[in-house]
Design a protein around this nucleic acid. Structure first.
Lengths: 343, 343
DNA sequence: ATGAAAGCGCTAACAT
DNA sequence: ATGTTAGCGCTTTCAT
């Protein structure tokens, strides 16, 4: 455990007992009224609520949660770097949480900081959240184990994972497959795939397999050189553009994320390669970045907000069971914009 | 108070008493050891820590906080919309929090959802956070009052505010002044100001006054028509570009945020107006968006990360005093990129 | 160095 | 409809 130096003294004075005394009631009655549980007359209730308001009473959640031996807040953890789609994800989550009267506390970590992530997870466990959502994060197996051991449901949302957790995401094989198919249908011949690690990254691997499958069905060869590795970042896109311009010619590229694709677009631009005239581009994600680039980017658009919504629904559905959460696949669509040939 | 329907049963079994029993100690000793407080032999400590690990013990923070009558977590609330600079802000905050061994819980609200914001603030109060940071949010006076009443320090970071809270931000008058000055020095004559409300928005007003001051000193008239209102969004930039193209000619524009400026850039592009050839552009904020646009955008670059760092430092410095936090101004700089004339 | 005991503020049977 | 009582799991004097 941590060597805390106590810092914040709790200065919030008003407690239930104070209200009880003023109202001439027992604390139990006040508690019931304030929580709308059990029986009480609406008349006294009014009085109590008034008093609570007057003296500036706020429930002490530590005490409440402790006594109740439960709570209704779940945790969300994510890294706010590189990728751009946490916004709709969060939107979906917060929306559903609100309608389900759940509280959510969020913590943000650094990408690839296993130690930091572990600390966050421990913190969440100490707070006894009833579930933990990982956004655009691949928790390590060791973290999963900790969570399992602590009997806390975990759910990865926004991307698939090979570890022993349930997840909610698009079908990445299909994303790779259909993006490729789309380009082939447009008549592209040499199709690059850029911005993710197709060997070590699980999502990358799935998409790569879809990509290969589509090529194979079209009797096209999947030359190794067509794939350029990266980490979903803008920078990955920039370097990939250089690569495709100087070392390996392509007539279209699939960008692993909107950031990668923007990097590709800018990289090509800087090198004097015209999109879509000389090379076509389709992005994966479909966030607002696609609308805010020039030309606007054609994309495989994922429904992140729905993923968020579904994520908290899954938690609710599992309320009291300890069953393993099932993996959920959310549909995506292809939106044609201006980085691919018009037909 | 809220009508909770209890949802998450706390299934985490191990408690200090269990460790105590196994170790043949009292709970008091175990508590001391686990918290590194008081006296104990390192020998037994080792044993205790081992046991804790073995049985998968995690401190119950509700119990701990309740007993201690204090805690060391502070809250951060922001809206993740429109504007783009929360990332460095958060980075600064998390970094400093980590070095100060503080926990932070984050909650995200919808912009302009006063009711939702109030709910979040109440939640934070119930959790007895010792301080609350508002990122890119202007809390209403009523929310400030609630916080004051509850004796919880509040701090607005990333933008100035006219309400009765301290804040950490750049000097917005100077931002307006120097951005304008910069353009004047470059030889621009008709300078637009776009993307914020210069009457109702406090930040907007400050910048506007700086803008006017600079124009005045250069003996230039601040024609009303040169200012185009907005809400810091990409869309504001788009509409402003149309306005400046069709209704009010300018030779340079100051964009109220990077999003606005990107909108301006794209809007001009779509209308066939060339930047910087026909119209110059300087953005305010200087996030990575400025590097990721083509052309890259000249900007007034604010130091958001430092603001975050300073924000939590301020909290710490105030530890036990109830003094009003002073307002802090963070320096900014102008970065010349490619949307303004070269000299 | 360790233990006993009280109490943090609240909730939940179980009375009445 | 309201009160009594016994905790929830932990921390913290105060003893020993």
């Amino acid at each position: 455990m941590d060597q805390n130096n106590y810092i914040g003294a709790m200065t919030l004075k008003a407690k239930i007992a104070d209200i009880a005394k003023i109202a001439g009631l027992s604390v139990a009655s006040v508690s019931r009224i304030l929580n709308g549980r059990g029986r009480y007359s609406e008349e006294t209730a009014k009085r109590v609520r008034q008093i609570a308001d007057d003296i500036g009473y706020y429930k002490n959640r530590s005490a409440s949660d402790l006594a109740r031996q439960s709570n209704n807040t779940f945790g969300v953890v994510y890294t706010n770097s590189e990728t751009h789609f946490s916004e709709p994800l969060i939107k979906g989550i917060m929306g559903q949480a609100a309608t389900d009267k759940l509280d959510v506390i969020i913590m943000i970590g650094k990408r690839d900081d296993e130690q930091g992530l572990t600390k966050i997870v421990q913190d969440m466990i100490e707070r006894r959240v009833f579930g933990l959502l990982f956004l655009s994060i691949q928790p390590s197996q060791s973290i999963i184990d900790i969570l399992n051991h602590a009997n806390i449901r975990a759910l990865v949302v926004g991307s698939a994972t090979e570890h022993d957790v349930s997840y909610i995401s698009s079908d990445d094989f299909q994303i790779g497959y259909q993006a490729t198919q789309f380009l082939i249908d447009k008549g592209y011949q040499r199709i690059g795939l850029a911005g993710m690690d197709v060997q070590r990254d699980y999502v990358g691997l799935q998409r790569y397999q879809g990509y290969r499958q589509a090529l194979k069905e079209a009797n096209m060869k999947a030359a190794e050189g067509l794939v350029h590795s990266g980490n979903f970042s803008y920078h990955s896109g920039i370097t990939a553009a250089t690569y495709y311009t100087n070392e390996q010619s392509v007539d279209a590229v699939i960008g692993a994320s909107d950031e990668v694709s923007l990097g590709l677009l800018n990289g090509f631009h800087d090198l004097g390669v015209q999109v879509p005239k000389q090379v076509g581009l389709i992005s994966i994600d479909g966030t607002e970045l696609c609308e805010q680039s020039r030309p606007k980017m054609t994309s495989v658009t994922q429904n992140f907000q729905l993923m968020g919504t579904r994520a908290v629904r899954e938690f609710m559905a599992l309320e009291d069971s300890h069953n393993k959460i099932e993996t959920v696949t959310i549909p995506f669509e292809i939106e044609t914009r201006n980085t691919t040939k018009q037909d």
